[in-house]
Design a protein around this nucleic acid. Structure first.
Length: 194
DNA sequence: CCCTAGCGGTGCT
DNA sequence: AGCACCGCTAGGG
């Protein structure tokens, strides 16, 4: 199945969204290199119409997310080509509110595999739609940031934006802070759905 | 701070 | 089947 690359301009630079016939399949951070290559062949008009709509939804959602806010609406996501475990992890990630963080261990518990902490890290790294599927809200149990495939600067920046948005909304972290001044999420996550 | 063992999903052979 | 990765963690210097 071919993916259609579409530029998404933001204050942080131009992301590239890749759409399948089912929705947003990948999102890439701005790169300094050459701009995104055009699709190999011109897709049918019906698909183009859908993609234009999804492009607007993606652009709006991404701008909101980059402002540290929860996107009011997402385009349909096409996460079909991955493993069940990865999809479970990503489903949990989508339950983490903006401005909060969970640990890899908490996410592992939430997907019902409490010892699969490293596997959760792998699944986060395999997240094809970063920012909108907020893998950046997962940090290490010892207070460290953990990793980020697209570069730790992005992770730091996204978390800082969310903390700032929380701050501006009048919400203050009530339970102390981690190393970077990020709010700590002490509650055990509720398993999503069961 | 450091190191180590143990862990489990994934993608290679 | 085996095996080497890893965005990890708990436990011990």
């Amino acid at each position: 199945m071919s993916l259609l690359p579409v530029p998404i301009a933001t204050v942080c630079g131009t992301f590239t969204a890749y759409f399948s016939q089912h929705g947003l399949a990948r999102l890439k951070f701005p790169s300094h290199g050459a701009s995104s290559a055009p699709p190999p062949r011109r897709p049918p008009e019906r698909l183009l119409e859908r993609v234009r709509r999804w492009q607007r939804l993606t652009a709006r959602a991404l701008r909101e997310a980059l402002a540290g806010k929860r996107p009011s609406r997402l385009p349909p996501l096409d996460l079909s080509a991955r493993t069940p475990f990865q999809r479970r992890v990503w489903a949990v990630l989508r339950c983490i509110p903006a401005g909060q963080t969970w640990t890899y261990a908490q996410v592992a518990a939430a997907v019902g595999a409490p010892r699969a902490v490293r596997a959760v890290g792998n699944a986060c790294g395999a997240n094809p739609v970063p920012v909108l599927v907020p893998c950046h809200r997962v940090r290490r149990s010892d207070g460290g940031l953990g990793g980020f495939s697209s570069g730790l600067n992005w992770k730091r920046w996204l978390l800082a934006r969310e903390a700032l948005a929380q701050d501006r909304a009048g919400r203050r972290p009530s339970l102390g802070k981690g190393r970077l001044g990020l709010p700590i999420q002490p509650l055990r996550p509720k398993p999503a759905g069961g």
